[in-house]
């Protein structure tokens, strides 16, 4: 039995609007085992980033956690003291953000940006941290690593900048690395390089990875397990091979059907699913996907389906759908 590293339960996130609070993330349950790579997939705007940001209390203004828990190494991330929170951020959990253009401080040398977590978590001196920063740059595959320490972000290409971001996330050898669409802003060839880099590092450092993406194809060879999010809820959670072999949720099937569009814009509508996800605060009473679902029945429009293992299927393959779970049962 593998060890649970992170277990998120019933996480709810709300945003303050002029008409009062609106739910963005509606009771998400997910977990990450030690050494495991979890892929989180879903259309843009379904709450992937906010879910992960909320764990380290990095939510933007007006957006807050409204309930739930996130057990991580024996304590609840959502209840950490400011000091524990600081030790966790960058120390135990590393973060890699989507846009390497804006996520690095433009007026700070990258050596200094890489040194910061080392100085604050490891208590390293400036000189030691700088040496280690050079090693990190080599680790993430930046040619002429030491020479780049004094460069500013704008002097590097997008791919190089994302490597620096990954270096920052890995600086303190965290137990968990959260990568939020780290390749979306990059060219297709660079995307593959970054995926390979993380694959390689994950093995070497023995850490768990949460990789957020809207692109199922990208994580096919990377994730051990995949969570599919729709409108702030988990609709399917399965080991990667099982998900690709037999997707159970109509939404996942739609995602898979539209796969050969690697590198397409994030906003691109799903080819095989008409319509758009519900806006926060305007979710339908039943299954949030029902209005777009070809298989929807009356019950779907009234009762929210629970995430449950499919009877007759693997226990690890769970889906939140009235219709397909029943169909499998009958089969």
């Amino acid at each position: 039995m593998t060890e649970r590293l992170l277990e998120v339960k019933d996480l709810r996130i709300e945003i303050d609007t002029r008409r009062g609070p609106a739910t963005i993330v509606d009771g998400i349950n997910l977990h990450v085992d030690a050494g495991e790579t979890l892929g989180i997939v879903g259309e843009s705007g379904c709450g992937k980033s906010l879910t992960m940001l909320s764990l380290l209390r990095l939510l933007p203004n007006k957006i807050r956690v409204a309930g739930g828990s996130a057990a991580f190494q024996g304590s609840d991330l959502l209840k950490l003291s400011p000091r524990e929170l600081r030790e966790t951020r960058g120390g135990k959990i590393g973060f890699v953000f989507q846009d390497p253009m804006t996520s690095l401080n433009p007026v700070m040398r990258i050596g200094d940006q890489l040194s910061e977590p080392l100085i604050h978590h490891r208590g390293m001196s400036k000189a030691d941290a700088r040496k280690r920063a050079g090693e990190l740059l080599r680790l993430v595959g930046i040619p002429g690593a030491e020479a780049r320490l004094d460069a500013y972000p704008h002097e590097l290409s997008g791919g190089m900048r994302q490597r620096v971001m990954i270096g920052i996330g890995l600086a303190c050898e965290p137990d968990l690395l959260i990568a939020d669409e780290p390749t979306t802003a990059l060219d297709v060839t660079i995307q593959a390089q970054i995926v390979d880099l993380v694959k390689d590092l994950r093995k070497r450092l023995g850490m768990s990875v949460v990789w957020i993406t809207h692109d199922l194809a990208l994580i096919a060879g990377l994730a051990d397990r995949i969570c599919v999010l729709y409108a702030g809820t988990v609709v399917e959670d399965a080991p990667a091979e099982q998900l690709f072999a037999g997707p159970a949720h109509p939404y996942t099937r739609g995602l898979l059907a539209s796969i050969p569009r690697m590198g397409g814009a994030e906003t691109e509508r799903l080819a095989s699913i008409g319509g758009t996800p519900p806006e926060p605060g305007r979710r339908p009473p039943g299954c949030p996907f029902a209005p777009r679902c070809a298989l929807a029945e009356d019950i779907c429009r009234q009762v929210v389906p629970k995430l449950a293992s499919m009877q007759g299927g693997s226990a690890a393959h769970r889906v939140a759908c009235h219709v397909t779970s029943r169909a499998l049962e009958a089969a």
Binding site: R89, T102, E116
Partner: peptide, 10 residues
């Protein structure tokens, strides 16, 4: 975004 990065670094 880079302010969020700084916070995420601890």
């Amino acid at each position: 975004d880079f302010v969020r990065t700084a916070r995420a670094k601890g």
